[in-house]
Write a protein that binds this DNA or RNA. Structure first.
Lengths: 304, 304
DNA sequence: AGTCTTGTTTTGTCCAGGACAAAAAGGGGG
DNA sequence: CCCCCTTTTTGTCCTGGACAAAACAAGACT
């Protein structure tokens, strides 16, 4: 508790946990083992982290989400980290992020951002908006953040406005109520709500009946919900940061708990690579595969 | 780590932290001091909590949010807890929760729930929907949950669908872009997103320009955002569970960090009672006060 | 009666350093 | 190249002590 360094230049260990998503225990054991981060102490001997260290921790965290191991990163200097980040980016698709959008995000310009979305919506339709703009934009935003081009509040702003726009557009869609009935959620350890919403958009545009429970749903409750909502499909989303083992364990348990007639679909960056060939599970490889998957389901169930 | 009791009848300490919002440290110290909860241990000596205990912990948590102290609650038996809960409810408004809505929530019936919202929207308008239906409903849902009438997934379902409907309706509203420009968010320790959305609805319906950053925004970032978005008002929401001292400290720091011309509004169950007479802060006493407050602001700024 | 002290109890969070299991990496065969 | 085994890395949990912040209680003063 103690000296509650109120928000400005030094953060307590709780605050750092909140900011970076790294558990207190992890922060302490890193300090013990690698000597970084090495926060100063207040009068009571409690850790106080500098903004600089917190920033570095955030970079490290994000590189870890991309598969880097902490040992290397914690030994590296700030300059070396920078090199890694640049190399990481060079090896990817060139950023699409137009100056217009970036500016809108940086200045928190609600109208400008919505204008771009609206424009894309008109040109490419709802599904196109998601596949051609939002999905790649998510990647770019992450990179811009790592590069330091945009800050935390800007990222929040983007997420919030995008969710808002998608939900809004979704609401104005006529709900046809055709099968399949899809139950949407994520496992308890998974926070990401935007990915889930993108899937909901794709499904609804395809005319399917969606029931989203939001993120972080306990396994037992997913089972119950699938029954009470008499779902045809249960769809889960995994971000790239999700621990593989846990994903597999969760999926197997869930697969057994569900009726055999209920399909289990998994998608998201964390599912794409590592969850293939699990029995009784359909992997959605990208946001663009949702449509085909629904049509395939309908073909298979058209007979009766 | 260890035996990862996958989801069904026994939970690790991490899982309990997730489910109840009580920190691991707190769970351990309660066990040490009060002898509850007393989880069994796995082969490695790690705690495994029963679903029953977790349920009891959830009740305790919620009663604490209403002002009860842990010492009393942890000493009490399950039966005594039940008495407290019933007494707590008797002292409140009789539940408005029509059977129709409760049934819709329990059976995860998207269409039925939306129908009720749509109906209310037509009858009372957007603001009426929020003040007369959603706001009291939130209270009722909380109580029904505590009573055991609905479960976790049902509450998730309700939150998700309500947010979805409100956001959707919001999106179809013409954005007039009249002043004031309002920046909406919560402090980092505050999760609640639905309250924030309700305020956004009221403001937008009033014709104000909203920029929501979503929940959990660091103080320093709120300051920056208020500048870059050149906001007239910064509005914060506090749930009843928010620690008073921290709220006051946060508000004072923020008040100093903001330009004097920028107004600071606070609302939510946690703000109503305890934050009055802070200098330079306007307390919004209930969701219905948002409209008058905006009009008062406009009157005061109409002169030039 | 209210509000401001002051002292007392309750309660949450932090610390250190040890332990150990899961995940990843490395190292041969087939 | 893929599969199985061993070694290293890494995150999370444990105990029990400490202490500051919050809540409460009691008295003193407008």
């Amino acid at each position: 508790m103690s000296a509650h360094a109120s928000g400005l230049s030094l953060l307590t260990i709780s605050a750092v946990e909140r900011e970076t998503g790294l558990l207190k225990d992890t922060l302490r054991v890193w300090e013990r083992r690698y000597g970084f981060p090495k926060p100063i102490r207040d009068e009571a001997g409690e850790r106080l982290y500098s903004l600089e260290d917190v920033g570095k921790l955030r970079l490290i965290r994000r590189l870890m989400d991309q598969g880097w191991r902490p040992g290397k990163l914690l030994a590296a200097s700030a300059a070396e980290l920078q090199l890694i980040i640049e190399a990481e980016q060079a090896s990817r698709v060139p950023a699409l992020l137009a100056g217009e959008i970036l500016d809108a995000i940086r200045s928190h310009d609600v109208e400008a951002l919505r204008r771009v979305f609206q424009q894309t919506l008109l040109e490419k339709g709802l599904q196109g908006l998601v596949t051609d703009l939002v999905a790649p934009l998510n990647v770019d935003i992450g990179e811009a953040w790592m590069r330091g081009d945009i800050g935390v509040p800007d990222e929040h702003f983007y997420t919030e406005q995008t969710q808002s726009f998608l939900r809004g557009t979704l609401a104005s869609y006529a709900r046809t109520g055709k099968p399949p009935r899809v139950l949407l959620t994520t496992l308890p350890e998974e926070e990401h709500a935007l990915g889930l919403l993108m899937v909901e958009v794709m499904l609804t545009a395809e005319g399917a009946q969606c029931c989203s429970l939001g993120p972080r749903m306990p396994l037992a409750d997913i089972r119950t919900s699938a029954l009470t909502a008499s779902a045809d499909i249960v769809a889960l989303s995994f971000s790239s940061a999700f621990p593989v083992r846990q994903a597999i364990a969760g999926i197997r348990t869930l697969r057994e708990a569900l009726l055999p007639t209920v399909e289990l679909w998994v998608g998201g960056a964390g599912a794409r690579d590592k969850l293939r060939n699990e029995a009784g599970v359909r992997v959605i490889r990208g946001i663009g595969d949702v449509g085909p998957a629904v049509r395939a389901w309908r073909d298979a169930h058209a007979s009766h």
